[in-house]
Design a protein around this nucleic acid. Structure first.
Length: 432
RNA sequence: GUAGCCGUAGCUCAGCUGGUUAGAGCACUAGAUUGUGGUUCUAGGGGUCGUGGGUUCAAGUCCCAUCGGUUACCCCA
Protein backbone atom coordinates (compact mmCIF):
# COMPACT_ATOMS: atom_id res chain seq x y z
CA UNK A 1 0.00 0.00 0.00
CA UNK A 2 1.24 3.47 -0.83
CA UNK A 3 0.21 7.01 -0.13
CA UNK A 4 -2.01 8.22 -2.93
CA UNK A 5 0.23 11.15 -3.81
CA UNK A 6 3.18 8.81 -4.25
CA UNK A 7 1.39 7.14 -7.13
CA UNK A 8 -0.76 9.84 -8.72
CA UNK A 9 0.62 11.57 -11.77
CA UNK A 10 3.40 9.06 -12.47
CA UNK A 11 1.69 6.82 -14.98
CA UNK A 12 -0.23 9.21 -17.20
CA UNK A 13 -3.89 10.02 -17.35
CA UNK A 14 -5.04 6.46 -17.96
CA UNK A 15 -2.76 5.16 -15.23
CA UNK A 16 -4.19 7.57 -12.67
CA UNK A 17 -7.62 6.26 -13.47
CA UNK A 18 -6.53 2.66 -13.03
CA UNK A 19 -4.98 3.13 -9.61
CA UNK A 20 -6.94 1.27 -6.93
CA UNK A 21 -7.97 3.94 -4.47
CA UNK A 22 -8.71 3.08 -0.87
CA UNK A 23 -11.36 4.99 1.04
CA UNK A 24 -10.14 6.60 4.24
CA UNK A 25 -10.80 4.67 7.41
CA UNK A 26 -13.48 5.61 9.88
CA UNK A 27 -15.95 8.33 9.14
CA UNK A 28 -14.38 9.11 5.81
CA UNK A 29 -16.96 11.63 4.70
CA UNK A 30 -16.31 13.80 7.75
CA UNK A 31 -13.94 16.10 5.92
CA UNK A 32 -15.96 16.02 2.77
CA UNK A 33 -17.87 19.08 1.68
CA UNK A 34 -19.15 20.37 -1.59
CA UNK A 35 -17.84 23.63 -2.91
CA UNK A 36 -20.23 26.53 -3.17
CA UNK A 37 -20.07 26.23 -6.91
CA UNK A 38 -21.11 22.58 -6.86
CA UNK A 39 -24.00 23.28 -4.48
CA UNK A 40 -25.17 26.10 -6.72
CA UNK A 41 -25.08 23.81 -9.70
CA UNK A 42 -27.03 21.08 -7.99
CA UNK A 43 -29.64 23.33 -6.43
CA UNK A 44 -30.14 25.04 -9.75
CA UNK A 45 -31.42 21.80 -11.21
CA UNK A 46 -33.11 20.50 -8.14
CA UNK A 47 -34.49 22.30 -5.16
CA UNK A 48 -32.89 21.47 -1.86
CA UNK A 49 -35.93 19.50 -0.85
CA UNK A 50 -34.27 17.30 1.71
CA UNK A 51 -30.96 16.74 3.37
CA UNK A 52 -30.32 13.66 1.25
CA UNK A 53 -29.86 15.68 -1.92
CA UNK A 54 -26.25 14.49 -1.99
CA UNK A 55 -27.44 10.98 -2.62
CA UNK A 56 -30.37 11.93 -4.81
CA UNK A 57 -28.04 13.82 -7.00
CA UNK A 58 -25.01 12.13 -8.46
CA UNK A 59 -21.99 13.86 -7.04
CA UNK A 60 -18.72 13.43 -8.93
CA UNK A 61 -16.60 12.07 -6.09
CA UNK A 62 -13.56 11.79 -8.35
CA UNK A 63 -13.24 15.54 -7.97
CA UNK A 64 -13.01 15.09 -4.21
CA UNK A 65 -10.51 12.23 -4.17
CA UNK A 66 -8.06 13.95 -1.86
CA UNK A 67 -10.78 14.40 0.75
CA UNK A 68 -11.99 10.81 0.84
CA UNK A 69 -8.92 8.76 -0.06
CA UNK A 70 -5.30 9.17 0.90
CA UNK A 71 -4.09 5.59 0.31
CA UNK A 72 -3.88 3.44 -2.78
CA UNK A 73 -2.68 -0.01 -3.82
CA UNK A 74 0.59 -0.11 -5.70
CA UNK A 75 0.20 0.09 -9.44
CA UNK A 76 3.66 -1.17 -10.27
CA UNK A 77 6.93 -1.84 -8.48
CA UNK A 78 9.01 0.88 -10.09
CA UNK A 79 7.48 3.98 -8.54
CA UNK A 80 7.39 2.56 -5.00
CA UNK A 81 10.99 1.49 -5.59
CA UNK A 82 11.97 5.04 -6.52
CA UNK A 83 10.28 6.26 -3.37
CA UNK A 84 12.17 3.66 -1.37
CA UNK A 85 15.50 4.65 -2.90
CA UNK A 86 14.94 8.29 -2.01
CA UNK A 87 13.94 7.43 1.55
CA UNK A 88 16.97 5.25 2.06
CA UNK A 89 19.45 7.18 -0.05
CA UNK A 90 21.96 7.38 2.79
CA UNK A 91 22.01 3.65 3.36
CA UNK A 92 22.22 2.63 -0.29
CA UNK A 93 25.41 2.15 -2.23
CA UNK A 94 24.99 3.31 -5.81
CA UNK A 95 24.70 1.97 -8.46
CA UNK A 96 22.03 -0.04 -6.69
CA UNK A 97 20.65 -3.23 -8.15
CA UNK A 98 17.67 -5.12 -6.82
CA UNK A 99 14.94 -7.49 -7.84
CA UNK A 100 11.51 -7.71 -6.29
CA UNK A 101 8.54 -10.03 -6.75
CA UNK A 102 5.23 -8.74 -5.46
CA UNK A 103 1.63 -8.31 -6.47
CA UNK A 104 0.39 -5.09 -8.02
CA UNK A 105 -3.15 -3.94 -8.67
CA UNK A 106 -4.96 -2.26 -11.54
CA UNK A 107 -8.55 -1.07 -11.23
CA UNK A 108 -9.32 -2.39 -14.69
CA UNK A 109 -11.94 -4.70 -16.12
CA UNK A 110 -10.36 -8.13 -15.99
CA UNK A 111 -10.25 -10.16 -19.18
CA UNK A 112 -8.06 -12.70 -20.89
CA UNK A 113 -4.47 -12.06 -19.85
CA UNK A 114 -5.49 -9.07 -17.81
CA UNK A 115 -5.86 -9.25 -14.08
CA UNK A 116 -6.87 -6.88 -11.32
CA UNK A 117 -4.18 -8.35 -9.13
CA UNK A 118 -1.07 -9.88 -10.61
CA UNK A 119 2.57 -10.47 -9.80
CA UNK A 120 5.41 -8.55 -11.29
CA UNK A 121 9.07 -9.32 -11.02
CA UNK A 122 11.13 -6.18 -11.34
CA UNK A 123 14.85 -5.88 -11.90
CA UNK A 124 16.32 -2.39 -11.72
CA UNK A 125 19.68 -0.68 -11.72
CA UNK A 126 19.51 2.79 -10.26
CA UNK A 127 22.20 5.42 -9.81
CA UNK A 128 23.95 4.95 -13.13
CA UNK A 129 23.14 6.30 -16.55
CA UNK A 130 25.49 3.92 -18.35
CA UNK A 131 23.92 2.27 -21.36
CA UNK A 132 25.68 -0.89 -20.33
CA UNK A 133 22.80 -1.37 -17.90
CA UNK A 134 20.33 -1.47 -20.77
CA UNK A 135 22.44 -4.18 -22.35
CA UNK A 136 22.56 -6.12 -19.09
CA UNK A 137 18.80 -6.07 -18.73
CA UNK A 138 18.16 -7.19 -22.29
CA UNK A 139 20.60 -10.01 -21.69
CA UNK A 140 18.73 -10.87 -18.50
CA UNK A 141 15.44 -11.02 -20.42
CA UNK A 142 17.04 -13.23 -23.03
CA UNK A 143 18.46 -15.56 -20.38
CA UNK A 144 15.15 -15.92 -18.59
CA UNK A 145 13.10 -16.78 -21.64
CA UNK A 146 15.78 -18.98 -23.11
CA UNK A 147 15.83 -20.93 -19.86
CA UNK A 148 12.10 -21.62 -20.01
CA UNK A 149 12.34 -22.19 -23.78
CA UNK A 150 9.83 -19.55 -24.71
CA UNK A 151 10.34 -17.90 -28.09
CA UNK A 152 10.02 -14.14 -27.79
CA UNK A 153 10.62 -10.87 -29.57
CA UNK A 154 12.35 -8.15 -27.61
CA UNK A 155 11.25 -4.80 -28.94
CA UNK A 156 13.41 -1.82 -28.17
CA UNK A 157 12.95 1.86 -28.83
CA UNK A 158 14.01 5.10 -27.23
CA UNK A 159 11.88 7.93 -25.92
CA UNK A 160 14.44 10.40 -27.23
CA UNK A 161 13.75 9.17 -30.73
CA UNK A 162 10.05 9.69 -30.16
CA UNK A 163 10.89 13.09 -28.72
CA UNK A 164 12.88 13.83 -31.86
CA UNK A 165 9.91 12.89 -34.00
CA UNK A 166 7.67 15.23 -32.04
CA UNK A 167 10.30 17.93 -32.33
CA UNK A 168 10.74 17.74 -36.08
CA UNK A 169 6.97 17.64 -36.34
CA UNK A 170 7.06 20.99 -34.62
CA UNK A 171 4.85 19.90 -31.73
CA UNK A 172 7.07 18.61 -28.93
CA UNK A 173 4.27 19.12 -26.41
CA UNK A 174 2.24 16.50 -28.26
CA UNK A 175 4.80 13.78 -27.81
CA UNK A 176 2.43 11.54 -25.85
CA UNK A 177 -0.42 11.85 -28.34
CA UNK A 178 1.92 11.27 -31.26
CA UNK A 179 3.60 8.25 -29.76
CA UNK A 180 0.39 6.65 -28.54
CA UNK A 181 -1.02 6.99 -32.04
CA UNK A 182 2.10 5.61 -33.71
CA UNK A 183 2.10 2.73 -31.26
CA UNK A 184 -1.15 1.47 -32.76
CA UNK A 185 0.23 1.29 -36.28
CA UNK A 186 0.37 -2.48 -36.61
CA UNK A 187 -3.04 -2.81 -34.99
CA UNK A 188 -5.18 -0.26 -36.81
CA UNK A 189 -3.12 0.71 -39.87
CA UNK A 190 -1.72 3.93 -41.24
CA UNK A 191 -5.01 5.62 -42.13
CA UNK A 192 -6.45 5.26 -38.66
CA UNK A 193 -3.23 6.40 -37.04
CA UNK A 194 -3.37 9.62 -39.06
CA UNK A 195 -7.03 10.01 -38.16
CA UNK A 196 -6.23 9.65 -34.50
CA UNK A 197 -3.45 12.21 -34.70
CA UNK A 198 -5.77 14.65 -36.41
CA UNK A 199 -8.38 14.14 -33.73
CA UNK A 200 -5.76 14.92 -31.08
CA UNK A 201 -5.10 18.28 -32.70
CA UNK A 202 -1.83 17.45 -34.39
CA UNK A 203 -1.28 19.73 -37.36
CA UNK A 204 -1.19 18.52 -40.94
CA UNK A 205 2.39 19.74 -41.33
CA UNK A 206 3.39 17.65 -38.38
CA UNK A 207 1.63 14.62 -39.79
CA UNK A 208 3.40 15.12 -43.10
CA UNK A 209 6.71 15.14 -41.24
CA UNK A 210 5.86 11.95 -39.41
CA UNK A 211 4.36 10.13 -42.36
CA UNK A 212 7.61 8.69 -43.81
CA UNK A 213 7.95 6.68 -40.60
CA UNK A 214 4.55 5.09 -40.87
CA UNK A 215 5.10 3.09 -44.00
CA UNK A 216 8.78 2.49 -43.49
CA UNK A 217 10.11 -1.02 -43.66
CA UNK A 218 13.72 -1.96 -43.39
CA UNK A 219 16.49 -3.43 -41.30
CA UNK A 220 18.23 -1.78 -38.40
CA UNK A 221 20.75 0.17 -40.47
CA UNK A 222 18.08 1.46 -42.82
CA UNK A 223 15.98 2.63 -39.92
CA UNK A 224 18.97 4.41 -38.42
CA UNK A 225 19.85 6.21 -41.64
CA UNK A 226 16.25 7.28 -42.21
CA UNK A 227 16.09 8.73 -38.73
CA UNK A 228 19.50 10.36 -39.04
CA UNK A 229 18.27 12.28 -42.07
CA UNK A 230 15.09 13.19 -40.28
CA UNK A 231 16.83 14.38 -37.14
CA UNK A 232 19.27 16.82 -38.73
CA UNK A 233 17.76 19.60 -36.70
CA UNK A 234 16.85 17.63 -33.61
CA UNK A 235 19.48 17.28 -30.91
CA UNK A 236 17.34 15.02 -28.81
CA UNK A 237 16.62 12.75 -31.77
CA UNK A 238 20.33 12.46 -32.53
CA UNK A 239 21.02 11.52 -28.95
CA UNK A 240 18.36 8.84 -29.13
CA UNK A 241 19.98 7.37 -32.23
CA UNK A 242 23.38 7.27 -30.54
CA UNK A 243 21.92 5.49 -27.55
CA UNK A 244 20.07 2.87 -29.50
CA UNK A 245 23.04 2.27 -31.77
CA UNK A 246 25.25 1.52 -28.78
CA UNK A 247 22.72 -0.86 -27.27
CA UNK A 248 22.17 -2.74 -30.51
CA UNK A 249 25.82 -2.96 -31.46
CA UNK A 250 26.79 -4.26 -28.04
CA UNK A 251 23.98 -6.79 -27.98
CA UNK A 252 24.81 -7.96 -31.44
CA UNK A 253 28.55 -8.42 -31.05
CA UNK A 254 29.16 -9.12 -27.39
CA UNK A 255 26.05 -10.52 -25.76
CA UNK A 256 25.24 -13.78 -27.55
CA UNK A 257 21.51 -13.10 -27.57
CA UNK A 258 19.25 -16.03 -28.51
CA UNK A 259 15.97 -14.15 -28.91
CA UNK A 260 14.87 -11.90 -31.72
CA UNK A 261 15.68 -8.27 -30.94
CA UNK A 262 13.79 -5.66 -32.90
CA UNK A 263 14.25 -1.92 -33.16
CA UNK A 264 10.62 -0.84 -33.24
CA UNK A 265 10.12 2.86 -33.98
CA UNK A 266 6.44 2.53 -33.19
CA UNK A 267 6.98 1.18 -29.68
CA UNK A 268 5.79 3.92 -27.36
CA UNK A 269 4.64 2.61 -23.95
CA UNK A 270 2.14 4.67 -22.07
CA UNK A 271 3.98 5.13 -18.81
CA UNK A 272 5.00 8.73 -18.46
CA UNK A 273 8.21 8.33 -16.53
CA UNK A 274 10.36 6.78 -19.25
CA UNK A 275 12.97 9.10 -20.73
CA UNK A 276 15.37 6.88 -22.67
CA UNK A 277 15.32 3.25 -23.73
CA UNK A 278 11.97 1.51 -23.73
CA UNK A 279 11.66 -2.24 -23.89
CA UNK A 280 8.78 -4.57 -24.46
CA UNK A 281 8.68 -8.34 -24.81
CA UNK A 282 6.09 -10.28 -26.78
CA UNK A 283 5.71 -14.04 -26.70
CA UNK A 284 5.69 -15.64 -30.12
CA UNK A 285 2.76 -17.88 -31.10
CA UNK A 286 0.67 -16.78 -28.13
CA UNK A 287 -1.98 -14.15 -28.20
CA UNK A 288 -1.41 -12.26 -25.02
CA UNK A 289 -0.28 -8.73 -24.27
CA UNK A 290 3.30 -7.92 -23.48
CA UNK A 291 4.86 -10.26 -20.95
CA UNK A 292 7.70 -8.00 -19.94
CA UNK A 293 8.32 -4.29 -20.23
CA UNK A 294 10.60 -1.60 -19.01
CA UNK A 295 12.84 1.30 -19.75
CA UNK A 296 14.98 4.11 -18.47
CA UNK A 297 13.68 6.77 -16.13
CA UNK A 298 15.84 9.81 -15.45
CA UNK A 299 13.62 11.87 -13.20
CA UNK A 300 11.61 9.43 -11.13
CA UNK A 301 13.57 9.87 -7.92
CA UNK A 302 13.66 13.61 -8.58
CA UNK A 303 9.92 13.75 -7.96
CA UNK A 304 10.53 12.38 -4.48
CA UNK A 305 13.43 14.72 -3.80
CA UNK A 306 16.60 13.07 -5.05
CA UNK A 307 17.87 14.64 -8.22
CA UNK A 308 20.29 13.34 -10.84
CA UNK A 309 19.73 9.67 -10.17
CA UNK A 310 18.94 7.82 -13.33
CA UNK A 311 17.62 4.29 -13.33
CA UNK A 312 16.65 1.59 -15.76
CA UNK A 313 14.47 -1.38 -15.03
CA UNK A 314 12.33 -4.13 -16.42
CA UNK A 315 9.26 -5.86 -15.16
CA UNK A 316 8.25 -9.43 -15.88
CA UNK A 317 4.50 -10.11 -15.87
CA UNK A 318 4.55 -13.39 -14.00
CA UNK A 319 0.91 -14.34 -14.52
CA UNK A 320 1.02 -13.70 -18.23
CA UNK A 321 4.24 -15.64 -18.58
CA UNK A 322 2.58 -18.52 -16.75
CA UNK A 323 -0.43 -18.29 -19.08
CA UNK A 324 1.81 -18.27 -22.13
CA UNK A 325 3.83 -21.24 -20.83
CA UNK A 326 0.61 -23.10 -20.26
CA UNK A 327 -0.66 -22.37 -23.73
CA UNK A 328 2.62 -23.45 -25.30
CA UNK A 329 2.66 -26.63 -23.22
CA UNK A 330 6.03 -25.74 -21.75
CA UNK A 331 5.27 -27.28 -18.37
CA UNK A 332 4.67 -30.68 -19.95
CA UNK A 333 7.71 -30.37 -22.18
CA UNK A 334 9.95 -29.42 -19.28
CA UNK A 335 8.51 -32.32 -17.29
CA UNK A 336 7.48 -29.96 -14.55
CA UNK A 337 4.28 -31.86 -13.91
CA UNK A 338 5.90 -35.10 -12.75
CA UNK A 339 4.49 -36.90 -9.79
CA UNK A 340 4.85 -35.30 -6.40
CA UNK A 341 4.40 -38.43 -4.32
CA UNK A 342 6.53 -41.51 -4.95
CA UNK A 343 4.99 -43.93 -2.45
CA UNK A 344 1.50 -44.10 -1.03
CA UNK A 345 0.85 -46.13 2.11
CA UNK A 346 -2.68 -47.44 2.25
CA UNK A 347 -4.78 -47.07 5.34
CA UNK A 348 -6.64 -50.08 6.74
CA UNK A 349 -7.30 -48.82 10.21
CA UNK A 350 -5.74 -47.53 13.37
CA UNK A 351 -3.39 -50.46 14.09
CA UNK A 352 -2.18 -50.62 10.51
CA UNK A 353 -1.60 -46.86 10.45
CA UNK A 354 0.47 -47.07 13.61
CA UNK A 355 2.44 -49.85 11.98
CA UNK A 356 3.12 -47.83 8.78
CA UNK A 357 3.60 -44.32 10.08
CA UNK A 358 7.21 -44.70 11.39
CA UNK A 359 8.24 -46.12 8.03
CA UNK A 360 6.59 -43.20 6.18
CA UNK A 361 8.56 -40.75 8.30
CA UNK A 362 11.80 -42.71 7.86
CA UNK A 363 11.36 -42.56 4.09
CA UNK A 364 10.69 -38.83 4.22
CA UNK A 365 13.82 -38.28 6.27
CA UNK A 366 15.72 -39.97 3.46
CA UNK A 367 14.13 -37.57 1.00
CA UNK A 368 11.61 -39.98 -0.47
CA UNK A 369 8.26 -38.30 -1.05
CA UNK A 370 5.81 -40.53 0.79
CA UNK A 371 2.32 -40.13 2.07
CA UNK A 372 -0.18 -42.20 3.96
CA UNK A 373 -3.84 -42.12 3.00
CA UNK A 374 -5.46 -40.12 5.78
CA UNK A 375 -8.83 -41.85 5.95
CA UNK A 376 -9.81 -45.44 6.53
CA UNK A 377 -11.30 -46.15 3.14
CA UNK A 378 -11.87 -49.05 0.84
CA UNK A 379 -8.70 -50.27 -0.78
CA UNK A 380 -10.29 -49.72 -4.15
CA UNK A 381 -10.74 -46.04 -3.41
CA UNK A 382 -7.16 -45.69 -2.17
CA UNK A 383 -5.80 -47.41 -5.28
CA UNK A 384 -7.84 -45.10 -7.45
CA UNK A 385 -6.40 -42.15 -5.58
CA UNK A 386 -2.88 -43.40 -6.29
CA UNK A 387 -3.76 -43.99 -9.89
CA UNK A 388 -5.36 -40.57 -10.41
CA UNK A 389 -2.41 -38.86 -8.80
CA UNK A 390 0.15 -40.81 -10.83
CA UNK A 391 1.76 -42.19 -7.71
CA UNK A 392 4.05 -44.98 -9.01
CA UNK A 393 4.27 -47.12 -5.86
CA UNK A 394 1.71 -48.23 -3.29
CA UNK A 395 2.51 -49.96 -0.03
CA UNK A 396 -0.12 -52.28 1.37
CA UNK A 397 0.11 -53.52 4.94
CA UNK A 398 -2.73 -55.25 6.73
CA UNK A 399 -3.00 -57.78 9.54
CA UNK A 400 -1.14 -60.52 7.68
CA UNK A 401 1.80 -58.27 6.83
CA UNK A 402 1.96 -56.94 10.38
CA UNK A 403 2.30 -60.49 11.67
CA UNK A 404 5.21 -61.07 9.34
CA UNK A 405 6.74 -57.62 9.94
CA UNK A 406 6.47 -57.05 6.19
CA UNK A 407 5.07 -54.62 3.63
CA UNK A 408 3.64 -55.39 0.23
CA UNK A 409 5.02 -53.03 -2.40
CA UNK A 410 3.00 -52.67 -5.56
CA UNK A 411 4.39 -51.13 -8.72
CA UNK A 412 1.47 -49.38 -10.35
CA UNK A 413 2.50 -49.40 -14.00
CA UNK A 414 3.11 -53.16 -14.19
CA UNK A 415 0.86 -54.24 -11.34
CA UNK A 416 3.54 -56.53 -9.93
CA UNK A 417 3.94 -56.71 -6.18
CA UNK A 418 6.23 -58.29 -3.63
CA UNK A 419 6.62 -58.60 0.12
CA UNK A 420 9.52 -56.71 1.71
CA UNK A 421 10.86 -55.97 5.17
CA UNK A 422 11.07 -52.35 6.31
CA UNK A 423 14.83 -52.26 5.69
CA UNK A 424 14.45 -53.73 2.24
CA UNK A 425 11.72 -51.21 1.45
CA UNK A 426 13.79 -48.23 2.55
CA UNK A 427 16.89 -49.50 0.78
CA UNK A 428 14.97 -49.97 -2.42
CA UNK A 429 14.04 -46.29 -2.54
CA UNK A 430 17.26 -44.85 -1.22
CA UNK A 431 19.81 -46.78 -3.27
CA UNK A 432 18.90 -45.67 -6.75
C1' G B 1 -15.27 4.62 -18.78
C1' U B 2 -17.84 2.40 -23.71
C1' A B 3 -19.94 -1.90 -26.30
C1' G B 4 -21.17 -7.14 -27.25
C1' C B 5 -22.06 -12.22 -25.48
C1' C B 6 -23.35 -15.72 -21.54
C1' G B 7 -25.74 -17.38 -16.45
C1' U B 8 -29.67 -24.76 -16.72
C1' A B 9 -26.67 -30.98 -11.97
C1' G B 10 -20.04 -30.55 -8.68
C1' C B 11 -17.80 -29.51 -14.10
C1' U B 12 -18.68 -28.87 -19.67
C1' C B 13 -22.95 -28.04 -22.12
C1' A B 14 -28.00 -29.49 -24.97
C1' G B 15 -33.03 -27.91 -24.33
C1' C B 16 -36.32 -25.89 -31.67
C1' U B 17 -41.36 -20.90 -33.35
C1' G B 18 -43.40 -20.81 -24.98
C1' G B 19 -46.79 -26.76 -24.06
C1' U B 20 -46.61 -33.35 -19.85
C1' U B 21 -42.31 -35.50 -14.89
C1' A B 22 -35.84 -30.32 -17.53
C1' G B 23 -31.65 -33.99 -20.43
C1' A B 24 -26.43 -35.80 -21.99
C1' G B 25 -21.19 -36.50 -21.15
C1' C B 26 -17.67 -36.23 -17.31
C1' A B 27 -17.26 -36.50 -11.97
C1' C B 28 -19.35 -38.84 -7.52
C1' U B 29 -21.62 -43.27 -4.72
C1' A B 30 -22.83 -48.53 -4.74
C1' G B 31 -22.47 -53.35 -7.08
C1' A B 32 -20.25 -57.09 -10.74
C1' U B 33 -14.71 -57.83 -7.95
C1' U B 34 -16.02 -59.52 1.04
C1' G B 35 -7.66 -56.65 0.79
C1' U B 36 -6.00 -54.26 -5.25
C1' G B 37 -6.14 -48.93 -9.70
C1' G B 38 -6.21 -47.79 -15.01
C1' U B 39 -10.76 -50.69 -19.41
C1' U B 40 -15.84 -52.43 -19.23
C1' C B 41 -20.97 -53.27 -17.59
C1' U B 42 -25.28 -52.26 -14.19
C1' A B 43 -27.79 -49.18 -10.80
C1' G B 44 -28.18 -44.69 -7.90
C1' G B 45 -27.93 -39.76 -5.68
C1' G B 46 -27.80 -34.83 -7.15
C1' G B 47 -31.39 -29.03 -10.34
C1' U B 48 -34.68 -22.41 -5.98
C1' C B 49 -33.08 -23.26 -14.62
C1' G B 50 -28.36 -16.41 -11.25
C1' U B 51 -32.09 -13.11 -8.54
C1' G B 52 -36.64 -10.02 -8.59
C1' G B 53 -40.77 -8.51 -11.25
C1' G B 54 -43.97 -8.66 -15.76
C1' U B 55 -46.74 -10.88 -20.21
C1' U B 56 -49.57 -15.66 -20.69
C1' C B 57 -54.35 -20.72 -19.60
C1' A B 58 -49.00 -22.13 -19.57
C1' A B 59 -42.09 -19.33 -19.01
C1' G B 60 -35.61 -22.69 -18.71
C1' U B 61 -37.65 -20.43 -23.40
C1' C B 62 -40.64 -13.82 -24.41
C1' C B 63 -40.14 -8.57 -21.95
C1' C B 64 -37.99 -5.31 -18.03
C1' A B 65 -34.77 -4.63 -13.99
C1' U B 66 -30.74 -6.33 -11.12
C1' C B 67 -26.45 -9.21 -9.79
C1' G B 68 -22.43 -12.22 -11.50
C1' G B 69 -19.16 -14.01 -15.38
C1' U B 70 -16.80 -13.22 -19.99
C1' U B 71 -14.91 -10.81 -24.53
C1' A B 72 -13.50 -6.48 -27.24
C1' C B 73 -12.24 -1.16 -27.21
C1' C B 74 -9.06 1.94 -24.24
C1' C B 75 -4.61 0.88 -21.83
C1' C B 76 -1.03 -2.38 -20.21
C1' A B 77 2.31 -7.00 -17.29
Amino acid sequence: MENMDTLMGKYGEEGDRLIFKILNSGNYLEKFSLSKKEIDEITKEKSLANEWFLFDHKVDFTKHLSEISEKALRYDLTVPFARYVVQHQNEITFPFKRYQIQPVWRADRPQKGRYREFYQCDADIIGSDALLNEVELVKLIDDVFTKISMPITIKINNRKILGGIAEIAGQPEKITDITVAIDKLDKIGQEKVIEEMQSKGISDEAIQAIKPLLHFKGDFQEKISLLSNLFESSEIGKKGIKEIEYVFETLKHLANIQSEVDFDITLARGLNYYTGAIIEVKAKNVQIGSICGGGRYDDLTGIFGLKNVSGVGISFGIDRIYDAMNELGLFEKANLLSESTLVLFTNFGKNETNYCLPTVFKLREKGVNSEIYPDIAKLKKQMKYANDKNIPYVVIAGEDEMKEQAFILKKMDTGEQKSLSETELINLFTTV
